[in-house]
Amino acid sequence: MSKTMRLDILTPERTVCCVEVDMVIARAVDGEVGILYNHAPLVVALDIAPLRYKSGDEEHQVAVCNGFMEVRDNRISVLAPCAETEEEIDIRRAAEAKARAEERLMHKDDIDVRRAELALQRALMRLKIAEHTRRGRAT
């Protein structure tokens, strides 16, 4: 008998996913947090990092760029400017974005370094998730 929690991932454009989960692991700005059933009410600011959730035997990853996670009454809401599930990630686009960001950082003359860094971080996160999914399928 497992008690599940409801996970909603919301972006301004759409509701990315809405599932029953057993556990959520996210990376907050000051470290990883794991959420299990009956967690105390919580609000954390998230980093640009994969958010992992387990439901049953499956484990999934979602790309989340910054944003927030709120936990309350066994309902987890993730609010982020952009988020994608592992199936939705466009590997080619992420790779291109990575190359572009790296090139910008290489010759940083008059560009916004902070922006390029964030773009690079997002691209790396997406590639990491994609890699993880591919390896998961191969085994």
């Binding site: 907050a28 000051d30 009410p41 919580l42 609000v43 954390v44 600011a45 309350r72 009454d73």
Partner: peptide, 14 residues
């Protein structure tokens, strides 16, 4: 649920 909230890193930062 209304009153106890853990806010991290800190309410001001969030």
């Amino acid at each position: 649920p209304d009153d106890i909230y853990i806010v991290e890193p800190s309410p001001t930062d969030v």
